[in-house]
Amino acid sequence: SYYEILDVPRSASADDIKKAYRRKALQWHPDKNPDNKEFAEKKFKEVAEAYEVLSDKHKREIYDR
């Protein structure tokens, strides 16, 4: 789930989600993982997609249904 990707509970606040996104984006940024760039790019995209949905109140409500 998007919550698992960002490592936050379903009850996470918008601020918690933003902090988790920043932490995970740094962790999986391809430039930070030169030895495993392809895998890092995949993870980085997953993190971005999760944040896009969970950071938008309307999209998150739909996702949580």
Rank of each mutant, 00 (worst) to 15 (best):
S1E: 07
S1P: 05
S1K: 09
S1M: 08
S1N: 14
Y2M: 06
Y2W: 11
Y2K: 03
Y2F: 11
Y3K: 00
Y3H: 01
Y3G: 00
Y3A: 00
Y3W: 03
E4D: 14
E4Y: 09
E4P: 01
E4N: 10
E4F: 09
E4C: 14
I5P: 00
I5G: 01
I5F: 05
L6S: 00
L6W: 00
D7Y: 04
D7P: 01
D7H: 07
D7F: 04
D7M: 06
D7N: 10
V8R: 00
V8E: 01
V8T: 03
P9K: 08
P9F: 05
P9R: 07
P9H: 09
R10I: 12
R10M: 12
R10D: 06
R10C: 13
R10H: 11
S11C: 15
S11W: 15
S11V: 06
S11M: 09
S11T: 15
S11E: 13
S11G: 12
S11F: 12
S11H: 14
S11D: 15
S11K: 08
A12S: 06
A12M: 01
A12C: 08
A12R: 00
A12V: 04
A12W: 00
S13K: 06
S13I: 04
S13E: 05
S13L: 05
S13N: 11
S13T: 14
A14T: 13
A14F: 15
A14S: 13
D15V: 08
D15C: 10
D15G: 10
D15E: 14
D15Y: 08
D15S: 13
D15K: 11
D16I: 07
D16C: 11
D16E: 14
D16V: 08
D16Y: 04
I17P: 01
I17C: 02
K18C: 12
K18A: 13
K18Q: 10
K19E: 15
K19I: 12
K19F: 08
A20H: 03
A20G: 05
A20I: 01
A20M: 04
A20L: 02
Y21H: 04
Y21N: 02
Y21V: 03
R22A: 14
R22E: 15
R23L: 14
R23F: 10
R23T: 13
R23K: 15
R23Y: 09
R23C: 13
R23V: 15
R23D: 15
R23M: 13
K24Y: 05
K24P: 00
K24E: 04
K24F: 07
K24I: 07
A25E: 09
A25Q: 13
A25N: 06
A25P: 00
L26D: 15
L26W: 12
L26E: 14
L26K: 11
L26G: 08
L26Q: 15
Q27P: 03
Q27F: 12
Q27V: 07
Q27C: 07
Q27T: 06
W28D: 01
W28G: 02
W28T: 03
W28S: 03
H29T: 11
H29E: 09
H29N: 12
H29I: 05
H29S: 14
H29P: 02
P30N: 05
P30Y: 05
P30S: 07
P30W: 04
P30R: 05
D31P: 04
D31C: 11
D31Q: 08
K32V: 12
K32E: 10
N33W: 15
N33C: 07
N33K: 04
N33M: 06
P34S: 11
P34H: 13
P34N: 08
P34W: 13
P34G: 09
D35G: 12
D35Y: 09
D35M: 11
N36P: 03
N36H: 09
N36F: 08
N36R: 12
K37V: 12
K37D: 05
K37C: 06
K37F: 08
E38T: 10
E38R: 08
E38H: 09
E38S: 12
F39I: 11
F39E: 13
F39H: 10
A40W: 07
A40N: 05
A40C: 08
A40I: 04
A40L: 05
E41I: 13
E41C: 13
E41A: 14
E41V: 12
K42H: 10
K42C: 13
K42G: 08
K42R: 13
K42D: 06
K43V: 08
K43W: 06
K43T: 06
K43M: 15
F44N: 04
F44Q: 06
F44D: 03
F44A: 08
K45M: 12
K45S: 10
K45C: 10
K45H: 10
E46V: 04
E46G: 04
E46N: 04
V47T: 04
V47Y: 05
V47P: 00
V47C: 10
A48K: 15
A48T: 14
A48S: 13
A48F: 15
A48C: 15
A48L: 15
E49A: 09
E49I: 10
E49M: 12
A50H: 00
A50S: 04
A50I: 03
A50F: 00
A50W: 01
A50P: 00
A50Q: 00
A50E: 00
Y51V: 03
Y51Q: 01
Y51R: 01
Y51E: 01
Y51M: 04
Y51C: 04
E52Y: 14
E52F: 11
E52D: 12
V53S: 03
V53G: 03
V53C: 10
V53R: 03
V53Q: 04
V53E: 03
V53H: 07
V53A: 04
L54F: 01
L54E: 00
L54T: 02
L54Q: 00
L54G: 01
L54R: 00
L54M: 03
S55F: 07
S55H: 07
S55V: 08
S55N: 08
D56T: 05
D56Q: 05
D56V: 05
D56R: 04
D56G: 03
D56I: 04
K57I: 13
K57P: 15
K57V: 14
K57A: 15
K57N: 12
K57M: 11
K57T: 14
K57C: 11
H58F: 10
H58L: 13
H58R: 14
K59I: 04
K59S: 08
K59E: 05
K59G: 04
K59F: 06
K59C: 09
K59P: 02
K59H: 05
K59R: 13
R60I: 02
R60Y: 02
R60E: 02
R60C: 03
R60V: 02
E61D: 12
E61H: 08
E61L: 11
E61K: 08
E61Y: 11
E61P: 04
E61G: 07
I62F: 08
I62V: 10
I62S: 09
I62G: 06
Y63E: 02
Y63G: 02
Y63W: 03
D64M: 02
D64R: 01
D64L: 03
D64S: 03
D64T: 02
D64Q: 02
D64I: 02
R65C: 11
R65V: 08
R65E: 08
R65H: 10
